[in-house]
C-alpha cells in the first residue's frame, strides 16, 4: 500500500521534467538529472528552499556569499529569466545549456551581448564598456590610469562600432566576435560534457525511483 507513495520524491518548486529540458537543450536526460544534483546542492547551501538565491550563487562562485560582482550580478539576472529574484531548476538548465560545448555559437554570442548590455537598451554603450573595464580592474586590484582605460575603451569601440554611431548593436557584436572568437571563450564550459561523471549520484536517485 504504502509503496505507491514511497516513490514520492521531494522536488524543488519550479522543477521541470528532465525529458522536457533535455529536448530543449544540448543535454541528455541523464545529464539533466546530474544537473539536478548540482542544482540541489547550490539551492540548499544557505536557504533550503530548492531555489538558487543571489547569495547562494555568489557563494558558489566566490566561496563567499557577500562578495558582490558586477558580472556575477549580470549572469544571475540572465539566468533568472522570470525576474523573480531566484533561479529555478528549469532556468538553471536552459541557461547552462548555452554554455554547453555543443550549443549553437549564435546562442553564445547573443548571451554575451545581453550580459554586456548592462542597462538592457539593446546596445552596448561606451559608458557600459568603461564601467565593465573599471569593475574588472577593481576586482583584480589592478590600477590603470584614466588615460589608459580611455584608450582601451576607445580602441575597442573603434573596432567594434563599425557604423560609428557610438554604440555596439547586435549585428556589430556578431561581426566583432567573428573576428575575435576568443571573446566568447568563457561562454563554453567543457565541464558540461562530463556532467554525469562530475555528479554521478543521480544514478542512485534514479534507481530509487525505478525500484517502485
Amino acid at each position: 500500500m504504502g509503496c505507491v507513495y514511497s516513490k514520492k520524491v521531494r522536488r524543488s518548486p519550479g522543477y521541470e521534467e528532465p525529458a522536457l529540458l533535455a529536448s530543449e537543450t544540448p543535454f541528455t536526460v541523464s545529464e539533466v538529472e546530474a544537473l539536478y544534483e548540482l542544482f540541489k546542492k547550490l539551492s540548499s547551501s544557505i536557504i533550503n528552499d530548492g531555489l538558487i538565491h543571489k547569495e547562494e550563487f555568489q557563494l558558489a562562485l566566490f566561496k563567499n556569499s557577500n562578495r558582490r560582482n558586477l558580472f556575477a550580478d549580470r549572469v544571475f539576472d540572465l539566468f533568472d529569466v522570470k525576474r523573480n529574484g531566484v533561479i529555478e531548476f528549469g532556468e538553471f538548465v536552459r541557461s547552462l545549456g548555452i554554455f554547453h560545448p555543443n550549443a549553437p555559437i549564435a546562442d553564445k554570442v547573443a548571451f554575451a551581448f545581453k550580459l554586456y548590455d548592462l542597462r538592457q537598451t539593446g546596445y552596448i554603450e561606451r559608458e557600459e564598456l568603461k564601467e565593465m573595464v573599471l569593475a574588472l580592474l577593481n576586482e583584480s586590484d589592478l590600477t590603470l590610469s584614466e588615460d589608459v582605460v580611455e584608450t582601451i575603451v576607445n580602441k575597442t569601440f573603434n573596432e567594434a562600432d563599425s557604423n560609428g554611431d557610438g554604440r555596439i548593436d547586435p549585428e556589430e557584436w556578431k561581426e566583432f566576435v567573428s573576428r575575435n572568437p576568443s571573446l566568447i571563450k568563457n561562454m563554453t564550459l567543457p565541464y558540461l560534457k562530463d556532467i554525469t561523471i562530475a555528479f554521478p549520484s543521480f544514478v542512485l536517485n534514479s534507481e530509487v525511483e525505478d525500484a517502485d
Partner: peptide, 25 residues
C-alpha cells in the same frame, strides 16, 4: 601592453564570469 588590449577580452577574465567554479565540489 595594456594599451593594445581588447576591452572585452579583459572583461572576460572576470571571476564573476568563470562559471566553472559552480562545478567545484
Amino acid at each position: 601592453r595594456p594599451v593594445t588590449m581588447n576591452a572585452f577580452e579583459l572583461i572576460s577574465t572576470s571571476q564573476g564570469l568563470n562559471l566553472s567554479t559552480l562545478f567545484e565540489k
